[in-house]
Design a protein around this nucleic acid. Sequence first.
DNA 1: AGACTGGGGA
Length: 505
Amino acid sequence: MVSLMPRPRGTVFLELTPKAPHPSKPFSFTTTSSTKAVTIRIITPTRLCSKLVLLCFRYQREKSCMPTLVKIGLDSDIYVGNALIQFYGCLGTLIDARVLFEKMPHRDVGSWNTLLGIYNYSSDSWEVLILFKRLMYEEIKADKITLVILFSACARLEKLHYGKTLHCYATKVGLECMLNLENALLGMYTKCKDIDEALRLFDKMGSRKDIVSHNILLNGYIEMELVDFAREIFDKIVEKDLVVWSSMMHGYVKAKQPKKTLELFKKMVDTGLTPDQNTMVSVLSACASLSNLQYGRLVHRFILQNNIRQDSFVKTAVIDMYSKCGSLEDGLVTFYKMDCKDVVTWTTMIEGLANYGLGNEALCTFYQMERQGITPNEATFVSLLAACSHSGLINEGCQLFRRMAGVYRIQPKIEHFGCLVDLLSRAGLLHQAEEFMEMIPADDKIIAYKTLLSACINYSEFDLGQKIANNMMELGPQSQAVYVLLSNFYALEGHGLKLQKQEET
DNA sequence: AGACTGGGGA
C-alpha cells in the first residue's frame, strides 16, 4: 500500500496506491531519517494521506532530507487538499498549490489560511493581501490565524496604514486579546518602525506578554540602531532562550560591536545553553569583523565539535569569516565542499576573491555561478565591480555594468556607480569617469565626486579637479571629510600651478 | 487535522 523508499542523499520517496487500507483497520508505519525516528498511527485513508504529506513537510523543514511525493491516488477531500497545499508550498511549487486550491470543491477557512500562509512564507506578501480581498468578497469569516498571517504580510510590506485598519477589525470582532495575535501585531508595528504604537501595545498587553513579545521589541530596537535600549530589554528577560541570546548577539554585530557579541557568546555557553546555527552565524560574523583568525578557527571547531548543523547560512558565514580573517584557502575549501550554494554564498566567495586582488578568479566564479542557473543580485554586482576595480579589469567592469542593467534588470545604485568611477579613476580614465557622473542621481553624486577628486589629486589633473571641486561646492554644505579633501586638492593645485609657472619661466 | 507570532549569511 505504502512504500517508503529511502534513497541516497536523504531523499524519501512516498508512493500511495489507489487501494488504501480498510478504514476500520488501523495502519501504522515507522520511518527513520538521519536525525529522528517518527512513528505515526493512521486510522483512515484520508488521515493516512494527510499525515504522510505532513511528514514530508516536516522533513523538508528540518532539511534532513528532500521529500518527493510520487503519486497520490486517494480521493482527495478537504483535509488532504489542505495538507497538499501546504506541501506544495513548502516545496516552493506555489503554482501547484494554487491550482489545487482553485480546484477544491469545498474550501474552509483553513484552506484559505494554508494558502495565505504559503504565500507569506514565500515572501509574496502582495498576493496575501490580494487573496484576503477575495476572501472577504466570498464572505469567508477570517479567524485569528488569518489575521496573524495578514499582520505578518503587512509587516513585511511595511503597510502600516493597512495594518492599523486590520487592527481595528480585530478589535471589532473581539480577537485582539489573543497572545500570538498581539505578538504578530507588535511585530507589524516594530517592522513598520512605529515604535510609539508598539510600546503602547506592549504596555497594554500587561502580564500577557511572553518572551516572544519581549524579543520582538528587542529586535525593533536593534533595527532602529538603538542597541542600548535592546540591551535593557535583554537584561530584563529572566529566562532567556536561544532566540533572545541570538537576537542580542546579532544586535551587537549590527551595531559594529563584535567584541560584545563574543562576550555574550561566552556568557550564553556558561549558562549551559547549546547554541544553534542561528547563534553561530552571528558569532562567525563577529569574528569576521574583528579579523581574528585564531578566534574564528576556534569557533569553527566549536561548530564541528558540538555537531551544530551547518546549513548554507553557517557555511556562508564560515567562508566570509575565513576570507576576512586572511585565510582565503580555508574559505575556498569550505566553498568547494558545499553542494547547495545560493546567491549569497557565491557573492561572499566573489567578494573574498576580489579582496585578495584575484579579479580574474572572481569573474570565473561568477561565470560558474551563472552556468549553475543562480541569478545574481545587486550585492553580487557590487563584489564583481569591486573585483574589476581592484584588479584593473576595465573592459570587464564596464561590460558587467551594462549586463547588470541590460540582462538582469538591476537598477544601478550608488555602490555600483562608485565602483565604476573608482575603476575608471584608478585607471587614469578621469574624463571617462567624469562623463559617467551624469548617470548618477544627484543625491548620490557627492560620494562619486570624492572618488574622482582623489583620483585627480593622484594623477595631478588640476583642470578636471577644479571643475569637480566647483561641482561639489554647488551641491551645498558637506561633511568635514569633503572639505578636507577639497583643501587637499587646492593645496596641491596651488603647488601644481607654481610648478607649472616655474617650468614656463 | 491543518493553517499562525520572536533570532541568522554577502
